[in-house]
Computed example of a mutant assay.
Amino acid sequence: MSIDREQFAAGVRWWQTKTNWPNDFHNSDYEVLAAQNPDGDFTDSWWAGFLPRLTTWKALRPLSQADVTGLFDEHRGDLARTWHQACAPVKHLDITGVAWDQVRTFPGVAARLKPTKSASAVFPSKFCHFLLPRIFPVFDNAAVGGSCTYETYFNLIKSTWEATPAALRAEFQMELAQLIEGHGGSSLYEGFPLATKIVELAFIGRRHP
């Protein structure tokens, strides 16, 4: 189903008034994350900087940092292997140019760092989003709601963007860029995940009209 202007506007409004999330929609964060991206070399020093962000984004609960770190140590080799096999070849693309089957192994390994009975999308989506935000959309229960696997959410984001008319997509991209650049005067970071962020905002608008 295509997104529309009312949904997008409602999502932006909710983000700006009902959360303490940054008004640049994490534009500056994405530039920092890109600079810190280990490109498959998942070292202890990288993890020490990455773990607090996962904690701040409430991705770990109810597990502790020590619990997840133990699982990270256990699966670090598989993370590196699947990154180089699945993610590295497409890391310069966005979700419009990537199919789930191309990258599914990496979030599959990421999910092992915080196993859940319901195969929740929250942890793997945040873990993967911080590494390749233009490919991996982030799932947040408070914002989007519902329960689904990450595969389902990935494909829903991708198909919804594709179902939205090209002219409307271009308008949303321009509008979001203006919103970002209107706060603090910073330019839109070239690696900003426009497609996934716009659909996320529209989904928020559907849940919080």
Rank of each mutant, 00 (worst) to 15 (best):
A9Y: 04
I95S: 02
H92S: 14
D67C: 02
D67K: 00
G49S: 05
C128F: 10
C128Y: 11
L194C: 05
D24V: 05
A34N: 13
A142H: 12
G49Q: 02
T160C: 10
T69G: 05
S28P: 04
K197N: 12
R207F: 03
L93N: 10
L60I: 12
L201I: 04
L131H: 05
V32W: 00
D24Y: 02
W14R: 08
W83H: 09
H208P: 03
G191I: 00
H75Q: 09
T19V: 07
Q65T: 15
S159Q: 12
T69Y: 04
L201Q: 02
L113I: 02
R81V: 11
G184T: 02
L60S: 03
P38S: 12
W47E: 07
E162Q: 14
G11L: 05
A202T: 09
G108M: 11
Q65W: 00
A10M: 02
N20E: 14
M1Y: 00
E31Y: 03
I180H: 09
T160P: 08
V144R: 10
L93Q: 15
Q102W: 09
D94K: 04
F172Y: 14
L132P: 02
T196V: 15
V138H: 04
P38E: 13
P133Q: 11
S125T: 04
I180M: 10
A80V: 00
D73S: 09
L131N: 06
R169M: 06
G205Y: 02
F106H: 08
R104A: 15
C148G: 10
A195P: 06
G185C: 07
T55W: 03
L79D: 12
F172A: 03
L54N: 06
L176P: 03
S125A: 04
Y30I: 15
R13A: 12
A143H: 13
P193M: 12
A111I: 02
A195F: 06
P22I: 06
Q16Y: 07
P133I: 04
H183K: 04
W83N: 05
Q102Y: 02
D78R: 13
V12K: 02
V98L: 10
L71Y: 11
N37F: 08
Y150C: 03
A80R: 13
V144N: 11
E181V: 01
R207N: 13
E200S: 13
P52S: 09
T43P: 05
G182K: 02
T55G: 03
F72Q: 05
V90W: 00
A110V: 08
A143C: 11
E190I: 10
H183S: 01
E171M: 08
G70C: 08
K58D: 14
V12N: 00
E31P: 06
N23V: 07
L156A: 12
Q102T: 12
S118R: 13
N37D: 14
P209V: 08
T19G: 09
P22E: 12
P62C: 11
L79R: 07
G108I: 13
R169V: 03
Q102E: 15
R53Q: 13
K117V: 08
P107E: 11
L113T: 04
P124Y: 00
A163Y: 08
A9G: 01
D24A: 04
F203G: 05
W15L: 04
P62Y: 10
K197M: 15
R81E: 15
A177D: 07
L168T: 10
N23H: 14
Q178C: 10
E171L: 13
I135H: 00
T105V: 09
I157V: 15
W21G: 01
